[in-house]
């Protein structure tokens, strides 16, 4: 987003966008005041939502916070107060350091590759060509698969001895890569599988955003003699930035948390490299400790650390949300 150099045109578009946005916000504010008379009425309407959130989100979150300062084993059913020892152990553990680093690399790769790929495909699929609808449908379909099914599919495809991929590679160029125990390949495989898995979601949103770009703006660019690349990069891309911004954050959160299903089936966190498995990401480590090794206290500590991470991400989202983004369309 920061790569966009403001041109006179884009600046004009931006100013217009900001003006219309402000006008809309004012109208909305006026409407709000008009609807609710009493002070308690809005709270009354919010009550059902708050109740559901309290039971299913706030209460468990509070329990998790509490549990993070205990040594607890789910099976044994014990709770021993240990203060911040869980945090100290975790943050000084070389295993956890490696998990943090590989999670960050994984998230960065998935977000950048995923969005680049999705935007390119959505751009191509939005061209008026024969069968465009079919292409769009096919692009969206991986999203409909559950992570477990996607994981199983990839597992069969990349079985080094009998998988379709290696059978093909062996026949064509005589190599049979070790996809699941070569650390580099396994990591790359999980990244590519995650990108593929998220592609449908990203393409849908980009397609919608592309269709919302006003035709006159694109036409003006064309009349001004912009090449295809220029009209994409200088006009369309800035206009798509609210969508890109939204997708960056949803993709960060998805790759942080939803990578679990894929990893669990495809690699089980392996292969081992350095201190631990190279595809053991934060959420998988949490699962291992909490649900396979039953270390509930240690898992709660990790959940708290992940919560802090999400808080940082949300803070960033609010902070940068209005600066670099053009809400033009």
């Amino acid at each position: 987003m920061s790569l966009v150099r403001p041109t006179p045109k884009s600046r004009a578009v931006r100013a217009k966008a900001i003006r219309s946005q402000e006008a809309r916000a004012e109208a909305a504010a006026a409407q709000e005041h008009a609807t609710f008379r009493g002070r308690w009425l809005p709270w009354l309407f919010l009550l059902p939502t708050l109740l559901v959130l309290a039971v299913f989100s706030y209460y468990p979150a509070a329990r998790t916070l509490r549990l993070s300062v205990f040594r607890a084993n789910l099976i044994v059913g014990n709770e021993q107060y240990v203060g911040l020892q869980n945090f100290a152990e975790l943050l000084s553990s070389p295993v956890y350091h490696q998990v943090i680093v590989q999670t960050l690399i994984f998230v960065a790769l998935v977000v950048v590759l995923g969005l680049t790929f999705a935007l390119s495909l959505a751009w191509l699929a939005s061209k008026p060509i024969a069968g465009a609808k079919f292409y769009r449908l096919m692009l969206i379909y991986p999203y409909a698969l559950s992570p477990a099914i996607a994981g199983t599919l990839w597992l069969f495809l990349f079985n080094p001895e009998i998988g379709a991929v290696n059978t093909l590679l062996d026949a064509l160029i005589g190599v049979k890569p070790r996809w699941l125990d070569n650390p580099f390949l396994a990591f790359a495989l999980v990244v590519v599988a995650s990108v593929w898995k998220g592609l449908g979601y990203n393409v849908v949103f980009y397609l919608a955003a592309i269709q919302n770009i006003p035709g006159d703006v694109m036409e003006a660019a064309e009349i001004d003699g912009a090449s295809a690349w220029q009209s994409f990069w200088r006009v369309a891309f800035p206009l798509l930035s609210p969508m890109t911004f939204f997708l960056v954050f949803t993709n960060i959160v998805t790759s942080l948390f939803d990578s679990f299903g894929l990893v669990n089936i495809l690699t089980r966190g392996g292969p081992v490299y350095g201190e631990t498995g190279i595809t053991t990401f934060l959420v998988y480590q949490l699962y291992e400790d909490g649900f396979r090794n039953f270390k509930t206290g240690a898992a709660a500590t990790q959940a708290v650390l992940m919560l802090l991470l999400v808080v940082c991400i949300v803070a960033m989202q609010f902070r940068y949300g209005n600066r670099k983004v053009h809400y033009g369309a």
């Binding site: 597992l155 001895e161 070790r178 996809w179 699941l180 070569n182 690699t267 089980r268 292969p271």
Partner: peptide
């Protein structure tokens, strides 16, 4: 030796 590369992958 050969295997799928995943730990304890008896199915594979």
């Amino acid at each position: 030796l050969t295997n799928t590369g995943k730990l304890a992958d008896t199915v594979g």
